[in-house]
Simulated scan of single mutants.
Amino acid sequence: MMNYIKNFLRYKGLLREFITRDLKIKYRRSILGYLWSLLNPLLMMVVLVAVFSNIFRFDIPNFPVYLLSGQIIFSFFAEATSLSMNSILDAGSLIKKVYIPKYIFPVSRVLSSFVSLLFSLVAILIVMIVTDAPITPVVLFFPLPLLYILLFSIGMGLIMSVLAVYFRDIIHLYTVLLSAWMYLTPIFYPINAVPDYVKSVISANPMYYFVEAFRDIVVYNQLPNFQTNLVCFTFSAISILLGLFVFYKNQHKFVLYI
């Protein structure tokens, strides 16, 4: 384990360069640049609030903040894992030429998406101010659920990057899976609006707990309870440990498939 940590610290400068590169590529030739990290969730929130507030009429206090908080967390996870899934394939020519720790490629994709997530948090603050939502000292604990979802996304990103090397079809199937996953996460509807058999499925969904932990802090002005923290920590720990195990077991065979 210490060797892995030393290796990570040795290449942290390269990891930082890859993160910077990914962000530059993402906003290349964009006039507004990083402002899109703020505008994208705001514009999507306006559309969804108009639809779900007026047509479906879910009775959720401060629905804009409720919606945006769930939307930002899930969007980060979807983007981070989708980008990391292609990371090894995209770096194939570089991997064949020089030695670089291969985990850097998927991890840098997740971390660059995390930087965009941090910019998106400004959108939540703006909506909270506009809608006159209460802002209490509890909001200072927002990094806790973000840490959970970051670790979970890194683990999932490592796994998806391995699967994509061996099974290219997973790149297309994952888009469909993310759509189903999104609808099974209470982002724009309350969990009490679904039947009991659907609730049992949602209760096995890790994203439900990450979203709820974040909402507890920014929407309900309370710390996530012990059970929510325990579930989030467990899912994050399993994801990162399983991701590292799968990645290190397979990384030496990447050059045969890329």
Rank of each mutant, 00 (worst) to 15 (best):
H172R: 06
P101H: 09
I159R: 01
F245G: 09
T131P: 00
S112E: 10
V107I: 13
Y11W: 15
F76K: 01
L23W: 01
D169I: 01
F58Y: 13
F245Q: 10
N250C: 07
I135R: 01
L42T: 08
P145V: 13
S87C: 05
I104Q: 10
T81S: 08
K102T: 15
L67M: 12
L35E: 14
S37D: 14
M182I: 15
H172P: 04
Y174G: 12
F56S: 04
T20E: 13
T20Q: 07
F152R: 00
N7Y: 05
S116W: 08
A133N: 06
W181Y: 09
P64F: 10
F167G: 05
S179G: 14
D216G: 10
G155D: 12
A180Y: 11
Y34D: 07
F18W: 05
W36G: 13
P206W: 06
L39Y: 11
F141R: 03
T234H: 05
M45G: 10
G33C: 04
V46S: 05
M160N: 05
V255E: 12
F77P: 14
Q71G: 03
S116E: 15
T20W: 04
L150K: 01
F76V: 00
V51R: 01
N250Q: 06
V65M: 09
K249N: 12
A80H: 04
H172A: 13
P64R: 03
T234M: 06
I73V: 03
Q222R: 11
F105M: 03
I104M: 09
S236P: 14
W36R: 00
V219G: 04
S108R: 00
L151S: 10
P64V: 08
M1V: 05
V165Y: 11
K96V: 11
V127W: 09
P41M: 01
L244Q: 02
E212G: 11
L242C: 13
L121N: 02
L151Y: 10
F247K: 00
K12H: 07
R28M: 06
P101F: 12
A193T: 04
R28Y: 10
N62G: 02
I202Y: 07
L14F: 15
L230C: 11
F142T: 11
H172F: 15
F233K: 00
F167Q: 05
L42K: 05
V246F: 09
N221R: 02
G157D: 10
G70T: 05
I104L: 15
Y220H: 08
S108H: 03
V162R: 03
L111V: 13
F247G: 00
V47E: 14
V127R: 06
L89A: 13
V138M: 05
Y220I: 10
